[in-house]
Every structure is written in C-alpha cells, then in structure tokens.
C-alpha cells in the first residue's frame, strides 16, 4: 500500500483535469492505496462550488467528488485564499465577511495552503492534475 496526495488545479467543468484526478483517485482506492487528501488549488477550487447544476443526464463531477469523499472518508481540502478570490466561500468565510450566502459545504473544507505542504510531506506521492 502506498499513500497519495492528489492535487487538482482545474475546474469541474471546462477542463479535463478534475475528471482525470477523480478517476485516478478511484483507481488508487480500488488498488488498495490510501489517498490522504485531495487538495484543490488554482482553478481547482471551483470544484467545491455546491451549486453546480448540470442537466440530469450529465455526469455531475462536483457531486461525484463529494460522494467519493464521503464513501471513502477522504478529506477534500480547498485552498481558502484561492477559493475566496474565485468566489467560492464556505459558511464561516461568508460570516466573517458579513455575507448572507455561501456556496461550499462539507465534505469540502476551506483550509490554508499549508495543508498541501503537510500532505506532500507525509504522502509518498504527489500527483497533480
């Protein structure tokens, strides 16, 4: 068994990067490896927007990430600074700014970039998409 940290730099819709990362994460798990966390950075933070609403006959990647994380207990960590400047806010971020709305919730959590660094330090492999 090996330990992985997966880094996602592309949005859920409009690039293939997040889908690649999703399929790779699934393949890691089915091979018996451990995915310590999935870290979303750059435009990858847009995956945490819970308001993705594709047509009912289309694959909902943002939802698929949430389901995968819930099923396998994998933390989905969004870089909070990258997310906030791209309009992706969790409830706590919104409250600090006195905003009445937010668009990100568990199992995604907004945290510092340090989470990427500690993940790199502890995991045996970083794979970026």
């Amino acid at each position: 068994m090996h330990t992985f940290i997966i880094q996602v730099n592309g949005p859920a819709y409009g690039s293939q990067s997040s889908y690649h990362a999703y399929r790779f994460t699934q393949a890691c798990l089915s091979a018996g490896h451990q995915v310590e966390k999935v870290f979303f950075y750059q435009d990858g933070v847009l995956n945490a927007n819970m308001l993705h609403a594709p047509a009912s006959d289309e694959f909902d990647l943002a939802k698929a990430w949430r389901e995968l994380a819930t099923t396998h207990q994998i933390p989905l960590i969004n870089c909070v600074a990258a997310a906030m400047r791209r309009g992706v806010l969790a409830e706590t971020d919104a409250k600090e700014l006195n905003l009445s709305q937010w668009n990100s919730e568990a199992p995604f959590s907004n945290a510092g970039l340090g989470e990427l660094v500690t993940g790199i330090e502890t995991a045996q492999r970083l794979v970026s998409f």
């Binding site: 950075y41 600074a81 510092g112 970039l113 340090g114 990427l116 660094v117 500690t118 790199i120 330090e121």
Partner: peptide, 9 residues
C-alpha cells in the same frame, strides 16, 4: 504563494 508556504513549513 506555494513556495513561501512550503518554506514556512
């Protein structure tokens, strides 16, 4: 940003 964070860790 990533480079600075890595250094501070």
């Amino acid at each position: 940003d990533f480079a600075m964070l890595s250094a501070s860790f």
